[in-house]
Design a binder for these strands. Structure first.
Lengths: 297, 297
DNA sequence: CATTCTTACGTACTGCGTAAGAATG
DNA sequence: CATTCTTACGCAGTACGTAAGAATG
């Protein structure tokens, strides 16, 4: 009985198929099939019920799966406990939203590489709602997203906050500066689809404010470009777009009440604890800062 | 990191050398050396201190060893829990004393084979004192011996009792039948070296009896043959030698106080628990019976 | 100088990937 | 009929054993 066999079993069950497990383990269905068969013949039991098309565990298989999880978790823990960080070899997929990708993701990746030079990092930039699903499907190991979802299957640890302010093209509100939320009725609101957009949507409701005209996009860059060209009013991290407000490309609006800060959290599946992930979250907390975007020099 | 590597580490530490570990794992020093090196390079740490001739663990190595023990124990437990007994494949060395070997060992082995047809049994017949040392050296997995030692490193579970009685060649005591322990002064006592011999030695002391002439042997068969030829008085399991007393080859002596029963226990290292061993002990308890020796038909 | 671990090298074998086959819904 | 797992077969890379080398006390 080898770890490879247990790993195959684990991912076949977790991802619900030999195909998926094979992709996860960077090999072929054939190899997975054989590892599972080896396991079965070694133990002299049937682990899977082959009568149906979808894999289902037998009773013994269920027992084995539970123990396999423990063995694999323990192996990982031992490796993380004992091995020197310089040699620690693993691949990890981090999911982030666009804003993070544009600001402090490079710093985070740099820090990780510094501490764990042999860890292979892949970053998946997507909307937070999709990242959540990818977490569940084990397509990513860690997601750093606005704190908009409260699913008990995930561990959530705050890594930082961002202060958003309303912005628009300077001449858009030239005649009458909006001062209160209500004043925004006159304009089209440009909102992101799944991150702060959701949080602010709820906040609007609580404040009794219903924007009459909205334009939703899944891309910050698109929102920014729309805003700069006068397509409406949007919110952006104050610190992040300071270079653009300074040179008058965008104007910052002073509207009361101010938009609440958005908390960013690092999320991962509760079961999938690991030293590496904890340590990455700590690094994220240290370098989470949405200031520097498009800064030159 | 594979189980093979951890196993190598485990046995190198446990047996104190690559050579010994290799023998235990049925391979060569070279292979063990490489497995350990693989482990070290995988983890990026030094597990062993190579500056001295005797292997000694580094600090990290110590940690790893502790975890390796747990992982291996867990694997074994999972295998025993999940695998079907028919296919369960392992080798186990059982140490027994001569008397057991001559009486119920064949039954025990038969029972084990019946339950675990794929388990390879080796039996090591030796004096109980040696069996104890072999247990410590991990040369045997289980010893079934008279209950003469109380070492806390071993788990001891009773499997049966045997009633010994004094016996001699019929004409040896023809003129004056000995009735009390003291009467044995006149004769040479033939005693085994390490099993009941030790227990009865202590018992003699407590009873204030000091046999003037003793002949010690490590072989029951030798004692028997000496006794049958009139070399002295010895003790044997009553039930076991009934065929010989019945036909008058040996005479049973009725001496007070009677020899205390000898309890046989199954001993194994406390750490080395396992379902298989527990189950073998249960089988031993069921078939421990010193009756049938040299029975024909 | 004997013992113990490491290194070097050729071999054997395990495990893998490709591609075709069987089974299920 | 499409999807999913199994089987067959040839290949490659891993892990092994032999034997010689280095180091230690």
């Amino acid at each position: 009985m080898t770890f490879k066999q247990l790993e195959a079993l684990y991912w076949v069950v977790t991802l619900g198929g030999f195909q998926h497990a094979a992709r996860k383990l960077h090999t072929t269905q054939s190899a997975i099939s054989k590892r599972v068969q080896e396991l079965e013949s070694f133990l002299g039991i049937a682990v899977f019920d082959r009568n149906h098309r979808s894999v289902s565990l037998t009773e013994k298989g269920e027992e084995l799966f539970i123990q396999a999880k423990k063995l694999l978790a323990m192996r990982l823990q031992v490796i993380e406990q004992v091995s020197s960080p310089e040699i620690f070899n693993r691949e990890i997929v981090i999911g982030v939203t666009e804003l993070t990708a544009l600001t402090w993701l490079p710093r985070l990746i740099g820090l990780i590489q510094q501490h764990y030079p042999r860890v292979n990092i892949e970053s998946d930039v997507d909307m937070s709602i999709n990242l959540q699903e990818k977490l569940l499907a084990d397509e990513i190991d860690l997601a750093i997203v606005p704190d908009a979802f409260h699913d008990p299957r995930f561990s959530r640890q705050p890594v930082g906050k961002v202060k958003n302010v309303w912005m628009c093209k300077p001449d858009l509100c030239a005649e009458a500066q909006p001062r209160r939320l209500y004043d925004l009725h006159k304009y089209r609101l440009l909102m992101d689809k799944s991150g702060p957009g959701i949080i602010y949507g709820r906040w609007f409701e609580e404040a009794g404010f219903t924007p009459p005209r909205k334009l939703i996009s899944n891309s910050i860059v698109a929102l920014l470009s729309l805003t700069v060209s006068g397509g409406g009013i949007s919110y952006f991290p104050e610190s992040c777009l300071e270079p653009l407000t300074r040179i008058g490309i965008l104007q910052q609006l002073d509207i009361a009440p101010a938009l609440p800060d958005i908390t960013y959290v690092a999320m991962h599946k509760v079961q999938r604890h690991s030293e590496l992930i904890s340590s990455i979250i700590m690094l994220a907390q240290n370098c989470c800062d949405f200031k520097t975007i498009l800064q030159r020099g």
